[in-house]
């Protein structure tokens, strides 16, 4: 802990305040000011310039009736559920690495898991966009190669998806409304998150040897071991990751923006709340309305963060 100081000492050390002033100024100007400004401007019709017109709560009531905005929350809900499942590979990876005997291998696998981070996230995203390309994309040529395409065509016919997959026609993953959300879910396969794996590994490290030994004596299968020993012990980490994932998903819109464009792709199926805010501000020039939308998101995320701090980080 920092040392408590007497008044005299504090007066003597007054120069110490210069240490905090730069950070304080930066935080005040670039973090507090924009937030307060967003609250203030959400009551205005504002085009981003000097002219603004006070309109009371009109922006908020418009947001409440904004079908696109609330539809975007539905999309987010789907993506959050999908992202829950997309955590499985990271957990599996962590458990696999943890169960290895060789520490050398453990270290090198850890490095390999981190390796994809050296590709800028934008590059990964554009490579995936290229995978989705109907003519040259790897995804279509993979489906053709493995014959999965004919399976999808049959399913299309059987379940009446309305001709999403057609014989001899390249599937437009990012061009067909019904495929937008599936494409957003497939994106990033096999969904290994470097941060997630490392955090789960840290959690697994706390498992004592004797637990495993006891389990071995009882002759439990590897999967039972996971269910009864490993998973309960990393529950804290899993909960942490779930909340972080939810916050991240709710806040993020770069992926949708770059893959699908500012309208959320065909039929607007990929529209997420953050993207709608960005769209209103920087495409439609409705900065005041965008501030109001931002505040709704702000409130949602704030609640999630509080839940996180209250229930999940306690054990840290």
């Amino acid at each position: 802990m920092s040392l408590p100081v007497s008044k005299q000492k504090a007066l003597y050390e007054w120069k110490l305040y210069f240490f905090i002033i730069p950070s304080l100024l930066l935080v005040a100007v670039f973090a507090y000011w924009p937030t307060l400004s967003a609250i203030y401007h959400s009551f205005f019709r504002w085009g981003g310039g000097d002219n603004k017109e006070f309109i009371g709560l009109a922006n908020f009531s418009r947001a409440l009736q904004d079908g696109v905005f609330w539809g975007a929350f539905l999309t987010i809900a789907i993506l959050v559920v999908a992202n829950l499942f997309k955590m499985i590979p990271s957990i599996a990876m962590a458990v696999l690495i943890h169960r290895l005997r060789s520490e050398r291998w453990q270290y090198w696998y850890r490095v390999l898991v981190v390796l994809p981070m050296i590709v800028p996230s934008l590059v990964t995203l554009f490579i995936w966009k290229f995978f989705f390309n109907p003519n040259m994309g790897a995804l279509n040529s993979f489906l053709d190669l493995t014959g999965l395409k004919s399976l999808l065509i049959a399913a299309d016919k059987a379940f009446g998806w309305g001709g999403v997959f057609l014989d001899g026609i390249p599937t437009a993953w990012l061009g067909e409304p019904a495929l937008v959300i599936p494409a957003l879910i497939i994106w990033g396969f096999p969904w290994l998150g470097a941060v997630g794996v490392l955090i789960f590994l840290a959690g697994l490290q706390s498992i004592g040897t004797e637990v495993y030994e006891a389990a071995d004596l009882d002759g439990v299968t590897p999967f039972q071991k996971f269910l009864h020993i490993e998973f309960p012990l990393i529950m804290t980490q899993v909960r942490l990751m779930v909340v972080l994932m939810m916050i991240g998903t709710l806040q993020g819109y770069g992926l949708q923006f770059l893959l699908l464009g500012e309208d959320g792709g065909p039929g607007g199926r990929g529209m997420v709340p953050g993207l709608w805010m960005f769209n209103r501000a920087f495409f439609a020039g409705e900065f005041g309305y965008a501030c109001a939308l931002g505040l709704f998101l702000f409130a949602f995320i704030l609640v999630l963060t509080m839940i996180n701090n209250k229930f999940i980080r306690v054990e840290k």
Partner: peptide, 22 residues
């Protein structure tokens, strides 16, 4: 003041930061 910012999401900031930088 610093800790509070760990809580506050910066999602709406992009709009007003732009105006501030302007």
């Amino acid at each position: 003041l610093f800790l509070l910012l760990m809580l506050l999401p910066g999602i709406a900031n992009i709009v007003t930061l732009f105006a501030l930088l302007k």
